[in-house]
Write a protein that binds this DNA or RNA. Structure first.
Ligand SMILES: [Mn+2]
Ligand SMILES: [Mn+2]
Ligand SMILES: [Zn+2]
Ligand SMILES: [Zn+2]
Lengths: 132, 132
DNA sequence: ACACTTCTTTAGAATAATTATAAACTACAT
DNA sequence: ATGTAGTTTATAATTATTCTAAAGAAGTGT
C-alpha cells in the first residue's frame, strides 16, 4: 500500500477507511474536484463495505489540515474540495456546477498592486465563471 | 423616497421593509459586504421596528435576482453578499473574515488563454487571501 | 502474545444556515 | 371600495456540517 507511509508520515494512522479514501481521491490522473456527497458516492461505487459519513467528513478535514486537500471557494450550498493543493485558478461551469483547473500558463501573470497595512498575501486565485 | 422608483421599475413593490433594507444597503459611500446575519444586525441598529428574518432573506434574494446585489464566493458557512455588483476583485482577510474591494487598477489585466467548447466567459474575478 | 494507551470509526443527536409553508397583511388597479 | 396579486411573518422543514460518546483498531512496550 503506497499510502500507508504517506499517512504515517503525517501522523495519521493508516486505517482501512483512510486508505480506501486515499485510493478514491488520489489514484487518478486528473485533479478531482468534489463535494463530500460526491465523494461518498464515489466511495460507494468503488469500494465494497461502507464508510460512515462522519468518517468521510473526518478524513477530508484531516487531509485538508495536512495539506493533501484544499477547499475551493464557490457559491454552492456544499463545500468543494480539490486534490490539487497548489495555488491555481479555475473555470466554474455554472450550468454543470463543475470546476476545471486552469494552468498558470492559461492565465497571464497577476500583479496585485494594492497593499494592506499589516497583512501579507497568502494566495491569489482567479475564478472564471462559464455560461453557455 | 428615492428607492420607490427603483423598486417599482424592477417590478418590486416598494414596501416599508424593502425601503428600510434599501437604506441600510445603499445609503452609504463604500461597498458593503455582508452576510444575512450581519445585515439583520445593521437593520436592528438603524431602524425602529423589526423585520423578520424571512423577509431579510426574501429581500436579499429578490435584490440579487434584480441585479442590485451579488454573491461573493468565499469559504464560509454563511453566504456573503456585495452591494458592488460590478465584476471586481477582492482581498479576503482570513483572520477578520472581511472582504475588501480591489479596483481593476489594483490588479493587472487578466487574460484567460484557455477556451472551453460551447461555453463563454461570464466573469473573471480574483480572490486574494490575506494573512498576518 | 498481552496489556495499555491513544487514535479512529460510527450511529445518532445537535447545530445552524437556508428554504418552504400558509395565513395575515398590503400595494395597487379597477 | 373591492378584488387581486404580491409581500410579510412566524414557524416548520430541510440540509450540510459538526458534535458526542461508545465501540473498535492501531501503535508501543513488555
Ligand atoms: Mn461557500
Ligand atoms: Mn450551509
Ligand atoms: Zn482545482
Ligand atoms: Zn466587493
Amino acid at each position: 500500500m503506497k499510502y500507508v507511509e504517506k499517512l504515517r508520515k503525517s501522523g495519521l494512522r493508516p486505517t482501512k477507511q483512510r486508505l480506501q479514501i486515499c485510493e478514491v481521491l488520489f489514484d487518478r490522473e486528473e485533479t478531482f474536484h468534489f463535494t463530500i456527497n460526491q465523494l461518498e458516492q464515489k466511495i460507494k461505487n468503488q469500494i465494497n463495505g461502507k464508510i460512515s459519513l462522519a468518517t468521510v467528513y473526518n478524513t477530508v478535514h484531516a487531509f485538508e489540515k495536512k495539506g493533501y486537500l484544499k477547499q475551493i471557494p464557490i457559491n454552492s450550498n456544499q463545500t468543494y474540495f480539490d486534490t490539487n493543493v497548489t495555488d491555481h485558478h479555475h473555470f466554474y461551469d455554472l450550468k454543470d456546477e463543475k470546476l476545471i483547473d486552469l494552468d498558470d500558463s492559461d492565465v497571464g501573470p497577476i500583479k496585485i498592486l494594492k497593499k494592506v497595512n499589516g497583512k501579507k498575501i497568502k494566495s491569489v486565485e482567479v475564478l472564471v465563471k462559464l455560461e453557455d
